[in-house]
Nucleic acid binder design. Structure first.
Lengths: 130, 130
DNA sequence: CCTCTACTACTACCGGTGTCGTAGGAAGAT
DNA sequence: ATCTTCCTACGACACCGGTAGTAGTAGAGG
């Protein structure tokens, strides 16, 4: 059944990133992580986000000792997928190629990344029956 | 200096697309175009969008006969650029590679597109001294 | 001149996101 | 038992984006 693509705002994403990168954490942990990243925000703001995110079903929490521990229930990959889909749909009516080409032309990549990219393309060629 | 990246919503983008694809148009033209695309929205809604977009500086208008003619002042390319940048920054802290790889792995491309892609990569390799 | 029509200006409203403040409970310190 | 500290629950608020209604104006037709 269709996981109805939840849209996340920028600040919400920052919280998700804290969870993705630091694993299950308490509100305070997330707060500290955001502060380290230069994002100064109030404790209750983080709490609000985590609560909302839980309501949206993208994070879960368990009581651990005195405080709740929150963890991500969706992967960064899946968010990437829906974000890209939105972008591609809204700007190019679903055609991904222009976006792909745009990325290659406008961003900088290391030789390693280029090599990896080339390999992927070879695989694409090889493994695309029908 | 620095064109302060204007963020556009989905419906606003739909209007921009009408302008990009149909050139300078009146409110009614845009409305018809949206209707053709299956987007049923009121005349005044389109007017509101065009007015707001003009205030944001992304479209301009000229009085022509009885009605104003609106035209885009920013390209689809530039919007693509900022959208991608936002995505990449918000999800991968500025690293474009994961997004690029994601696109290749998850979207379908035609042989032509793949060929074009391969060519671009070859150019990348060639044109990157040091 | 009067009316109909199309266009613009202004205002409004709702839901979502970003941001907190305050109140109240639980747990540790004195 | 009380004070201090940390945590959660709940409410608040402003701004933006999506959507539209109404009023007012200017030209087209009779």
């Amino acid at each position: 059944m269709a996981k109805k693509t939840v849209e996340l705002g920028e600040a919400e994403l920052a919280v998700m990133r804290a969870l993705w990168e630091g694993g299950p954490q308490t509100v305070r942990d997330v707060l500290n992580r955001l502060h380290e990243r230069g994002k100064t925000v109030a404790y209750t703001t983080v709490l609000t986000f985590l609560t909302r995110l839980e309501q949206k079903g993208v994070v879960a929490s368990d009581k651990r000792d005195t405080a709740y521990v929150y963890r991500a229930r969706i992967s960064r990959q899946s968010v990437t997928t829906s974000r890209i889909k939105a972008l591609v749909d809204q700007l190019y009516d679903g055609a991904a190629a222009p976006v792909l080409l745009h990325l290659i032309e406008n961003e900088r990549f290391t030789p390693d990344e280029i090599a990896q990219l080339r390999k992927l393309i070879d695989d694409l060629d090889a493994g695309s029956p029908e």
